[in-house]
Amino acid sequence: MKDHEGALIKGLIARLKGDGALKALLGDPIRIWDEPPAGAAFPYLLVGRGESRELAGGGLIEHRLTLSCASRFRGTEEARAVAAAVRARLADAPVEADGVRAVSLGVVFTDVFRSSDLKRAWAVMRVRAATEE
């Protein structure tokens, strides 16, 4: 069996890196990582927690991935803009990598908030996808 989650993440990153709105917000090349490098510029997008399970009937794998935008902009405007651009770019997008393709894809939850020290704003997005080979 192929690594569906790894292929989905690879395809998502490629899809997000090809978006002009996200380049304007997250730089060119787009700052998207699973761990930001030391001294990383803001804002950036993190690929976080992932859950996968086979759906009944076989053949389809359901994924729930967490993407988080970290911003140092005063207020939540920048984090909201990144979340909106991610949502628009992923809505039922044709994502495919390593012989695995998404048959459904979208952001199903977004939470935008300030950190307790008010130095950062966060946009946490939950992505749901179903993949098949």
Rank of each mutant, 00 (worst) to 15 (best):
A121H: 03
L8G: 00
H4T: 09
V112C: 14
D3V: 00
R64H: 01
P43V: 04
I9D: 06
V95S: 00
L26N: 11
G50Q: 01
A21T: 14
W33N: 00
S52W: 02
D28Q: 11
V112A: 07
S104I: 15
D111F: 08
L16N: 05
V82G: 11
F109D: 15
R101M: 09
E133Q: 13
R53P: 06
W33Y: 11
A91C: 05
A97L: 01
F73E: 13
G57M: 14
H4P: 00
G18N: 01
K2W: 12
A40F: 01
S116V: 15
E133V: 05
W33Q: 03
I61S: 06
E54P: 04
T131E: 02
E5F: 06
D92N: 05
S115H: 09
G99S: 06
A91Q: 08
E78D: 08
T66R: 10
R49H: 14
A40C: 05
A56E: 08
L22I: 05
V82N: 07
A84T: 12
G20Q: 11
L90I: 15
V100H: 00
S68N: 03
E54F: 11
R101E: 02
R49L: 07
R101G: 01
T66H: 03
C69Q: 01
E77I: 05
R74P: 03
S116N: 15
L118T: 13
K10W: 02
L105F: 07
W33P: 06
F73I: 01
D92G: 01
F109S: 09
L65E: 06
A7S: 12
R64K: 05
E51P: 00
L8C: 00
G20L: 12
F42K: 09
A130Q: 13
S71F: 07
G27W: 13
R89I: 02
W33D: 07
H4D: 10
D3E: 14
R15E: 02
E132I: 08
L67A: 01
G106I: 13
I61D: 00
E35M: 14
P94G: 05
D111E: 10
C69N: 02
A70K: 07
A88S: 13
E96C: 02
A7F: 00
A93V: 04
E78V: 02
T66A: 05
G11F: 01
A79R: 04
F109N: 11
G99D: 05
A83E: 11
W33T: 08
R53L: 14
K23C: 07
A130I: 15
H63I: 02
D19P: 12
R31E: 11
A83M: 12
P43H: 04
I32P: 07
I30W: 06
F73A: 11
G39M: 12
D92M: 03
K10V: 00
E5S: 06
R53H: 08
G48W: 02
D111P: 00
A85P: 12
A70L: 14
S115C: 03
V47C: 06
